[in-house]
Amino acid sequence: QLNAMAHQIQEMFPQVPYHLVLQDLQLTRSVEITTDNILEGRIQVP
């Protein structure tokens, strides 16, 4: 299920590496919260 959620987020934010999306999802278990984390700059994109 997390993989499906990660792919959904990757479609919206292809610039964010998959492993970072998955790592955040493991903590949040939420597409909405992880999306917010990306938008708020809480996930550092190399």
Rank of each mutant, 00 (worst) to 15 (best):
V31F: 09
M5K: 06
I9R: 01
Q15E: 12
H7L: 14
E40P: 01
T34S: 04
A6G: 05
L25C: 05
D36A: 14
Q1F: 12
S30Q: 03
A6S: 04
F13R: 01
Q15T: 12
I9W: 02
T28K: 01
Y18M: 11
Q10W: 15
V31P: 07
V45L: 13
V21C: 04
T34P: 00
Q10V: 14
Q1R: 11
H19W: 14
V21P: 00
L25Q: 00
P14R: 04
H19Q: 10
L2D: 04
V21R: 00
T35Q: 08
V16T: 04
E11P: 02
L39N: 08
V31W: 11
I43S: 01
P46M: 12
I33Q: 13
F13T: 01
I33H: 09
Q26L: 14
Q15M: 12
Q8M: 13
L22C: 06
Q1H: 13
L25H: 00
G41T: 02
M5W: 15
I38H: 01
D24Q: 03
D24G: 01
Q15D: 13
Q23W: 11
E32V: 10
G41V: 03
L22T: 03
Q10I: 13
V31D: 05
M12F: 08
I43R: 02
Y18A: 06
T28G: 02
I38E: 01
V31I: 13
A6H: 02
R42D: 03
S30K: 05
Q26S: 09
N3Y: 14
E32A: 11
D36C: 14
P14F: 03
P46Q: 10
I33F: 07
V31Q: 07
A4C: 09
E11C: 09
L39Y: 06
L2N: 03
V31N: 06
P14M: 05
P46E: 12
S30V: 03
M5C: 07
G41M: 06
I38M: 03
V16E: 02
L39H: 07
T28M: 03
Q1L: 13
I43L: 15
F13D: 00
Q26Y: 14
P46V: 11
A6T: 05
P17Y: 04
I38T: 00
E40K: 15
Q15L: 08
I38S: 00
Q1C: 10
A4W: 14
N3E: 15
F13K: 00
I9H: 01
Q26K: 11
V31K: 09
G41D: 05
S30C: 06
I43W: 06
Y18S: 05
H19C: 15
D36S: 15
I9Q: 00
T35I: 15
H7G: 09
T34D: 01
M5Y: 09
M12G: 04
N3C: 13
V45T: 12
V16W: 07
V31G: 06
I43H: 03
I38F: 05
Q44G: 13
T34R: 00
Y18T: 06
G41I: 04
Q8Y: 13
A4T: 09
S30A: 04
Q10Y: 14
T34I: 03
G41P: 01
T34Y: 02
I38R: 00
V21H: 02
P46W: 10
Q44K: 11
A4V: 12
Q44C: 07
Q8P: 02
R29D: 11
T28W: 06
I33D: 10
T34L: 01
V45M: 13
E11N: 07
L25A: 00
Y18I: 12
Q44M: 11
D24H: 03
Y18R: 05
R29I: 09
H7M: 14
I9N: 00
M12S: 08
Q10K: 13
Q1D: 15
S30F: 03
V45R: 08
L25E: 02
L27A: 11
D36R: 15
P17I: 04
L27I: 15
M5P: 01
T35Y: 07
D24T: 03
R42K: 08
T35M: 14
P46H: 08
F13Y: 10
Q1G: 12
N37S: 04
Y18P: 05
T28S: 07
V21W: 02
Q44D: 10
D36T: 15
R29K: 14
V45S: 10
I9L: 10
L39F: 05
V45H: 10
R29Q: 15
V45G: 11
E40F: 14
L20Y: 07
R29M: 15
L22I: 11
L2K: 02
V45A: 10
L39Q: 07
A6E: 02
Q26M: 11
L27R: 11
E11F: 11
Q10E: 06
T35L: 13
N37R: 10
S30R: 05
V16P: 04
N37P: 01
L39T: 08
P17A: 07
Q15V: 06
V21F: 03
L39C: 08
M12C: 09
Q44F: 14
H19L: 10
L39D: 03
L39G: 03
R42E: 03
D36L: 12
